[in-house]
Write a protein that binds this DNA or RNA. Structure first.
Lengths: 214, 214
DNA sequence: GTATGATTGAAACAGTTGTTTTAATCGTGC
DNA sequence: GCACGATTAAAACAACTGTTTCAATCATAC
């Protein structure tokens, strides 16, 4: 449409890039507005405060990512047959890594800030994000539970933490070139880990045996 | 010894706590010195700069953690027999989670800052930490390679990223109460994921089979 | 006891931060 | 053409930042 996007979007773009490069608090509004070719007061005018700007940057991306994940999960579940474990994991993982892989370095950069946000545990930013994540994670947890019965809710939650941790770390760490291959590896890795968890836990020191379940 | 520790250590303790609570850049030297009951100038006098203080906080903990990990790996390797995969993973994981579990909330808090540091990818802090990690990770990578042959170096590296990601995320997320149980779960999870990776990669859509290796 | 070096205390420095304010400008509907 | 709300511009604000300075204090060795 317009040759240059509206001021609001230019600010969001510049903020996302600079946040990823410098961090939230190391990035000043003056840097952002200068990079966005906007006036300093514009960010307070449009967003209200710097904190609100940060949240807006996150929402824009997370809405898209979670929508893509849930759409893929819906698709896997649409035949009334329950999807296989790998299909659920792919719905969780592939959109995330495809997003990392996405046009230019946008996604990759964004995931670096996402990790940063996870580290900021106790402030309002993390709480707002967790609320958004909680909804998605609950659906995935129950989808996994039906695909792989026999795990207590507590342990399932923990295994999901393992997977989300591996995913988040990988997204922040890996170059964007081979996203599909990494996603396949991670799905396989996560599925094997989950399946091993439904086996009876090995006694300490004893040689481990794998039990294959139905 | 002395009733109150030396100023240097009081500053390190206060800085670690505040960094975990507020973040590096949101924490001012005035907060730190006030909490440490030291003078503002003390931190520049003893450490040189704020950046050097941050590095000192990290070194103190990482030295201890990596030493513990390598000691446990040494012990597992000391009989000339190569240790089992689970033993290698335990050397990597258990000290880290035990550290999280450690006295009070120190370790748990510290790991939150560690994640923060990983997010700060491109500055000197991360480079200094990576150099320290690289040494340890190389030893663990080769120990895993002998315990579980058949993985290309590239894929092994990637699997290790999965594991470190799961570990780091879990350390930052979990409460410190049940560290041993979580460690057991994660070792089992990681071992199963690794073993599944040496199997031939499954063709898309085909039903997956588990191959049990020696 | 006194001299010497390490440490601390309090204040000041120069610079940057997020936010607010006021005036100027732009776009649109009448 | 004009008026009115939305947007932008530029400057000022008050507060806070890391760092430096310089005198006061402390501990220790002689």
């Amino acid at each position: 449409m317009t040759a240059t996007p509206a001021t609001c979007d230019r600010i969001l773009d510049a903020a996302e890039r600079l946040f990823a490069e410098e961090g939230f608090y190391a990035t000043s509004l003056r840097q952002i507005t200068q990079a966005a070719e906007a006036n300093l007061a514009a960010v307070n005018y449009h967003f209200g405060s710097k904190q609100a700007l940060i949240l807006a940057v996150f929402r824009r991306r997370l809405d898209a990512l979670n929508k893509a994940r849930l759409a893929r999960l819906d698709q896997a579940q649409e035949g009334n047959a329950a999807p296989e474990l790998e299909d659920v994991l792919e719905a969780l993982i592939v959109p995330a890594l495809a997003f990392t892989h996405g046009s230019a370095d946008d996604g990759h950069r964004f995931m670096r800030i996402l990790m940063r946000a996870f580290a900021d545990r106790d402030d309002q930013l993390h709480r707002a994000l967790s609320a958004e994540y909680a909804h998605v994670m609950r659906r995935f947890a129950s989808a996994i539970a039906t695909a792989l019965p026999g795990l207590s809710e507590r342990r399932l939650r923990r295994q999901l933490d393992f997977i989300v941790g591996a995913l988040t770390y990988t997204m922040a760490e890996s170059t964007s070139s081979d996203a599909r291959e990494i996603a396949d590896d991670l799905v396989q890795f996560a599925a094997a880990g989950l399946r091993s968890a439904v086996s009876v836990r090995h006694p300490d020191g004893a040689p481990r045996t794998l039990e294959i379940h139905s």
